[in-house]
């Protein structure tokens, strides 16, 4: 028998995204700006899906955005997530345009709304930096 508690599968840096996760470990959210057409994106391939040009430079994003949509998970799919049920998962539309999936923290599931202003908070699962978002505090 394996008595170790199951661990959540956390996204690991690959060759292309090493700078993204390294910056995350420092609490900064990076986006890539295409060297050819200047579109901001989160790269999933060496070439830009907009202009198909190669090359990009990382630049720091505001870390702010809004909840584009969200859902609340009730079904148990992975044992490591079971203690968190029901947990939320959201798609955040960053102020710069790109969208990324993330959990929301610091808000009850019942209080989440589409359009809610949020900001990034980098947390850790084990050693891995994980971007999560919390409601923007009223100034």
């Amino acid at each position: 028998m394996n008595d170790e508690a199951p661990t959540k599968p956390v996204s690991a840096a690959d060759e292309l995204t090493e700078p993204f996760f390294a910056a995350g470990a420092e609490g900064r959210l990076l986006l890539a700006r295409c060297s050819s057409c200047a579109e901001l994106r989160l790269p999933i391939a060496p070439n830009c899906p907009s202009c198909l040009g190669g090359g990009y430079e990382w630049e720091e994003a505001s870390g702010r955005g809004t909840v584009y949509t969200f859902a609340v998970m009730h079904q148990r799919y992975h044992p490591a997530w079971e203690p968190d049920l029901p947990y939320n998962i959201a798609v955040i539309e960053l102020d710069e345009g790109p969208r990324l999936p993330a959990n929301l923290i610091g808000v009850d599931n019942a209080d989440i709304t589409v359009g809610l202003p949020v900001e990034v908070v980098w947390e850790r699962e084990g050693d891995a930096p994980v971007p999560r978002f919390q409601p923007v505090r009223a100034v």
Binding site: P9, V10, S11, A12, D14, L16, T17, L100, P101, P131
Partner: peptide, 8 residues
């Protein structure tokens, strides 16, 4: 295991 931006 999940990897990269897609793995988020």
């Amino acid at each position: 295991g999940p990897q990269g931006i897609q793995g988020l």
